[in-house]
C-alpha cells in the first residue's frame, strides 16, 4: 500500500524546522521538550494527550522527526476546528512507520 502521507512536503519542512530548533538528541525529542510546544497551542490537555498517544507510534516516550510531524499536523488541524481522531488513520502513519 502506497498511500500518500497526509503531511505535505512544505508542511513537513516547517515541522522539521521546529523539530531541529528544539535540539533533538540522537534524532529524538523527549516528552518534556515537546510538551511546552504543544501546550503553546492552548488546546486542552486531554486533546494534547491524545495527540501524543497518536503520534508516539512506537510508544517510547520520545518523538522522532516523522512522529513529531504527525503531532504538529494534528495540533494544527485541531486549531482549525477539526477533531483529533481516536486512532491514527492509515494515511497519517508516516511512510517510515508502516
Amino acid at each position: 500500500m502506497d498511500i500518500p502521507w497526509f503531511v505535505k512536503a512544505e508542511e513537513k519542512m516547517k515541522f522539521d524546522t521546529i523539530f531541529d530548533s528544539l535540539f533533538p538528541v540522537g534524532g529524538y525529542l523527549t516528552g518534556d521538550k515537546v510538551k511546552p510546544v504543544l501546550l503553546n497551542s492552548k488546546l486542552p490537555v486531554d486533546v494534547l494527550g491524545r495527540v501524543w498517544e497518536l503520534s508516539d507510534i512506537d510508544r517510547d516516550g520520545m518523538l522522532e522527526r516523522d512522529e513529531f510531524a504527525v503531532a504538529m499536523y494534528l495540533v494544527y488541524r485541531a486549531l482549525e476546528g477539526e477533531p483529533v481522531p481516536m486512532s491514527l488513520p492509515p494515511p497519517l502513519v508516516p511512510p517510515s512507520k508502516r
Binding site: G31, V45, G49, E53, D56, R59, G61
Partner: peptide, 13 residues
C-alpha cells in the same frame, strides 16, 4: 488505544 494502567510515556497524562 491506551495501554493498560495508563501511559507513563505520555507527558500529558
Amino acid at each position: 488505544q491506551y495501554p493498560a494502567g495508563g501511559s507513563s510515556t505520555n507527558p500529558f497524562l
